[in-house]
Design a protein around this nucleic acid. Sequence first.
RNA 1: GGGGAGAUACUCAAGCGGUCAACGAGGGCAGACUGUAAAUCUGCUGGCUUCGCCUUCGCAGGUUCGAAUCCUGCUCUCCCCA
Length: 423
Amino acid sequence: MTAEKLPMTLLEELAFRGQLYQVTDADGLAERLARGPITLYGGFDPTADSLTVGNLATLLILTRFQRAGHRPIALVGGGTGMIGDPGGKSQERALNTAEVVDEFTRKIRSQMEPFLDFDSGTNPAQMVNNYDWLGSIGAIELMRDVGKHFPIPYMLAKDSVKSRLETGISYTEFSYMILQAYDFLELYRRHDCELQIGGSDQWGNITAGSDLIRRAVGGSCFGLTCPLVTTADGTKFGKTEAGAIWLSPERTTPYEFYQFWVNTDDRSVVNYLKVFTFLSVDEIIQLEETVTTNPGAREAQRALAHEVTALVHGKQTALKAERISRALFYGELQELEEDELQLAFHDVPTHTMEGDEQDLVDLLVAAGVSSSKRQARQDISQNAISLNGDRCADESHTVRKSDGLHGKYIVVRRGKNKYFLIQ
RNA sequence: GGGGAGAUACUCAAGCGGUCAACGAGGGCAGACUGUAAAUCUGCUGGCUUCGCCUUCGCAGGUUCGAAUCCUGCUCUCCCCA
């Protein structure tokens, strides 16, 4: 991959995208980037077997750096993940076993592959696992060579620690910053890595790293954080009532993933386009206009959903998710051919009905549409349920498979945008 | 170690012998209006074989015709004094 000829510098573009929050030495970094390619890294915690949309911002910044000609390193915290970052948590974290963390690490690694080019001739991306060095370092070595550079008052002053002094923090989590700082030092030694990026909650850990490098070997390195993504209504980004939005298609189907983005609030959509897509500055400005001139068309949301889904799941899958969405929200279900229907609903929760006919209330519960019979009756009486496009408010309705589309498919819709397929 | 306060549904929080499946707020779900958005208004929010029944108010017993409400023991949490 070669560096793109951008009308603005990388830092300027990141600034436009609202992705610059804190930089250790903004002028120095701009100067350094102007001198030539730099090696940088961002870390990812293996706390589950999949990344979530919450990890995307950091990942995309690495990608942007690579596209600008720099050498990104994605660090998977196989070692630090076994300790737990105290920042942002009110309680001590449960520690996973080495085997579990190892499993998570492998899966996360594969999820990064669409974002980073590992085979570039000029500036290939790399993946490292900090377990490789943290796993084998001795206690004495760590304390003498690394711990010596950490004054206790300095450590106590970090927000991540300070906020936990009242509620309690173990020595394990207290030491976390030492390990993450050591990562930076190790990458500086091994790969000449000069920059660490992360979310704004990582600022303390990042500066701990650059400070360590200066104290231990006299090197000068940079840190850069991006703001944490916020939602218009103040809720935590990337979470729905059903839980987090994952990158893994096993955890969040591409259709659900697409829907997550397409449902973005008008107030946030431009911000998300900047953070989560590679659309150009001009394209984003154009889409921004459509939000005010023709909000009902939801062009910006569609573009956002398409771009991010294509990035994570591939172009074909994104088109499929779009096709399903069109069929569900704008198409006439009856017009769909059987194979189209099957294809369209591949990602939608599906239930196989036993026998040819069943009481609607029982069916809704069995198919997971409603959580209980009482809830099912309520949904029906509130006009929330429609079968194959027709509202059904009759609690004693009996569903016959033979009445379905193509003699066997019943499309159940609950509320405005929850779909289920019964066959 | 001594003294005090408290544990109620997803969360916060009323209730302090019957009218309590349990006020209220938040959250969630749904309807109307819209644009698969937001805001607003309305309904619902333990379960079922639903004009009734069953199981819930930290746990285990007890008093009573009847308890979330009173008594006893247990577990846990918080505060004050040492």
